[in-house]
Design a binder for these strands. Structure first.
Length: 633
DNA sequence: CAGTGAGCGAGCTTCCGCTTGACTT
């Protein structure tokens, strides 16, 4: 008998089917041991030696694995093909080798790049050893996260009492939200004016155009900053006569989106279905684990925690067949589309994109066995997957140029017409309110038929006042998108990052937008001032570069940790020595309008610089945080 | 004498990433 160990039990079940009765496939259920949540788990004095502790919940899984391993001919570690997967394989090997009956057995490391019969059999017949560089990169990542979190958090407890935690990921996520709020507070709306005109064509049809250039100057967003400026121009244009000077028609096309990753699925489920990130993940988990169906439990989708955008060749073939037969030949591109080149920052691509396990299980067929929300998410995934293999959508964009007689004034009208819907037949865009592009809105209309040199009559000029708008607060979807862009967090953690920030009372979700609490602002100001390097948006990306160097053998992992610790340790001690007064002064520099002060009695209060009588400008009353602050020192 | 309350001190909190399943609504 051969023992195969993977991470997920649902995957174990599938692989067992592929491999037959000579193999027993068991799941580790993720990581099996970790650093204990207490001081001293990483010994910075002695080569960052780490203490590992078996998770209580993992004991029974490890017991089963051990029992089978004792009798196994081959022990195959088939955890995920990424850094954490390699680490789990290494942990398992260490734990199993502690057993005398297993100690001398050979361990084989195997990876599957997709879960199909062929890929699994191929993996099993190409075993290798555990990659020590990859495990070392994990060690560095793990130790650094522990050291950052378990050193900064206690400083917050004493310097900003009532604050709970800081960390490489959560503190930067918080900072994004706080910085955005700061931008909104400082935002000054800017006035600008737009100049448009409705002409009448010879066939008495209305033609909407906008002023494009005036006496050699191209008109841009801020060309007219006030009414006076635009009135001057209006006076000069009023008496002019206009005709069509050029007609330009150009085709353009749009390609479909890549199939879902965790991040894009969370974003789209939020926009289209209104699901929170955690709800999306819960539902996807059910679809992945399988629903009772035709007397069997079948997983309906592939693994839902992934940063990969490629899908298996078999699945592509099925999609192309389906498009050809059910949707129409003209929707099938000549070549299969390949998305493996479009890699997100720090993506590990250990799994395929999220797709239906069988494209023939259409949303219609599945509806009867799924609940409402499951059916909605399944349909979204099914459509996105199929659309990703469909033909481009095609448009024709028409641009009309309109000139006065002396050719010194140009208007332009643009319109675009969809010639072929292509992938949009299955999958359309929904934009969040802050993503809507106003120019694009203007662009969607169909233009009336005109001829070159045609005279335009009866112009109705229209000047309109506008103000620029502040940047929007982050939603769950836009925060996840931003985190992914910065390479911060992983598919398995996006949803939990959001819940940590809320649980710690650092942010509030109001009408689906994140607003930082006073505490959140205070913590960010504190970290930004005193731990600048570690809450930099690029800290994780820089760390990942070092981890890559460990993986490729260019640098020792201990060297990376030493370099980090030398500087960080100094930083920690400097901050510990700061008195409350110094901390308050520093914070006031970066908190904008809100200042913290201490009176003769040592009470700390919160005031607004620009309000008379120190009146508070904040919506929240002086809350628990400020009295707590008073006990510092 | 019994019951109340001010004041003090001790002990606790925490990271990220990989899994699911047991909770509640």
């Amino acid at each position: 008998m051969n023992l195969v160990i993977v991470e997920s039990p649902a995957k174990a079940k599938t692989i067992n089917k592929y491999l037959g009765t000579d193999f027993k496939v068991l799941a580790s259920y993720g990581h099996v041991r970790d650093l204990p949540s207490k001081n001293g788990s990483v010994d910075t004095e002695h080569d960052f030696k780490m203490i590992w502790e078996i998770d209580p919940g993992s004991k029974k899984h490890l017991k089963e694995i051990t029992d089978y391993a004792i009798d196994a001919d081959r022990i195959i570690l088939a955890t995920d093909p990424d850094r954490e997967g390699e680490a789990i394989a290494w942990h398992l090997k260490c734990i199993l080798e502690e057993n005398k009956k297993i100690k001398d057995k050979k361990f084989e490391r195997v990876v599957f790049n997709e879960i199909t019969k062929k890929a699994v059999e191929n993996g099993i017949s190409n075993p290798r050893d555990i990659n020590p560089e990859l495990v070392n990169a994990y060690m560095a990542r793990r130790a650094l996260d522990y050291l950052v979190g378990f050193n900064i958090s206690p400083i917050l407890w004493t310097k900003l009492p009532g604050s709970k935690s800081a960390g490489r990921v959560q503190s930067v996520a918080l900072r994004l939200i706080v910085d955005r709020e700061h931008d909104i507070e400082l935002f000054k709306p800017q006035e600008y004016w737009t100049f448009t005109c409705i002409f009448l064509t010879q066939q008495k049809k209305e033609l909407n155009a906008r002023l494009y250039s005036f006496k050699g100057n191209k008109i841009e967003k801020f060309s007219f900053k006030n009414e006076q400026e635009i009135q001057n121009v209006l006076e000069q244009i009023k008496k002019e006569k206009f005709n069509i000077s050029s007609i330009d028609k150009k085709p353009y096309r749009r390609s479909p989106y890549a199939p879902f990753t965790t991040s894009t699925m969370q974003q789209e489920a939020s926009k289209k279905l209104g699901f929170s990130a955690s709800r999306t993940m819960q539902i996807a988990q059910r679809l992945y684990q399988g629903i009772d169906f035709e007397g069997d439990t079948v997983g309906l989708i592939t693994y839902m925690r992934t940063d990969g955008t490629n899908i298996s060749q078999d699945a592509i073939k099925e999609c192309r067949n389906y498009i050809d037969k059910e949707i129409g030949k003209k929707y099938l591109p000549n070549e299969a589309r390949n998305y493996s080149g479009k890699k997100a920052k720090n993506a590990q691509e250990a799994h395929e994109a999220i797709r239906p396990t069988d494209i023939l299980r259409t949303p219609e067929k599945m509806r009867s066995i799924l609940d409402k929300d499951q059916a909605k998410l399944y349909e979204l995934i099914w459509n996105r997957t199929l659309a990703s293999q469909m033909e481009n959508a095609e448009y024709e964009r028409c641009t009309l140029e309109i000139l006065n007689e002396s050719k010194s004034i140009t208007f332009r009208a643009t319109g675009s017409v969809q010639v072929f819907d292509g992938f949009l037949k299955l999958y359309q865009d929904v934009k969040e309110e802050d993503e809507v592009d106003k120019d694009e809105e203007n662009d969607q209309k169909i233009l009336p038929e005109v001829k070159i040199n045609e005279k335009l009559e009866n112009p109705k000029f229209n000047t309109e006042q506008h103000f620029t708008e502040p940047p929007p607060r982050f939603s769950e979807a836009s925060l996840v998108k931003k985190l992914e862009e910065l390479g911060i967090g992983r598919p398995s953690t996006y949803a939990s990052i959001i819940s940590v920030l809320s649980a710690r009372n650092y942010v509030e979700l109001v009408t689906k937008r994140f607003i930082p609490t006073d505490r959140g602002k205070l913590i960010t100001a504190f970290l930004d001032k005193l731990f600048t390097k570690y809450v930099d948006y690029n800290f994780t990306a820089t760390l990942e570069d070092s981890l890559d160097e460990i993986t490729t053998g260019k640098i020792e992992y201990l060297k990376v940790l030493e370099n980090f610790w030398k500087e960080f340790y100094k930083n920690i001690n400097e901050v510990k020595e700061l008195r409350t007064r110094a901390v308050l002064d520093l914070l006031n520099e970066s908190l904008g309008d809100i200042i913290f002060d201490k009176d003769q009695n040592g009470n700390i209060s919160k005031k607004c610089k620009n309000c008379s009588d120190g009146e508070l400008s904040l919506k929240n009353p002086i809350n628990t945080m400020v009295p707590h602050l008073a006990v510092v020192e």
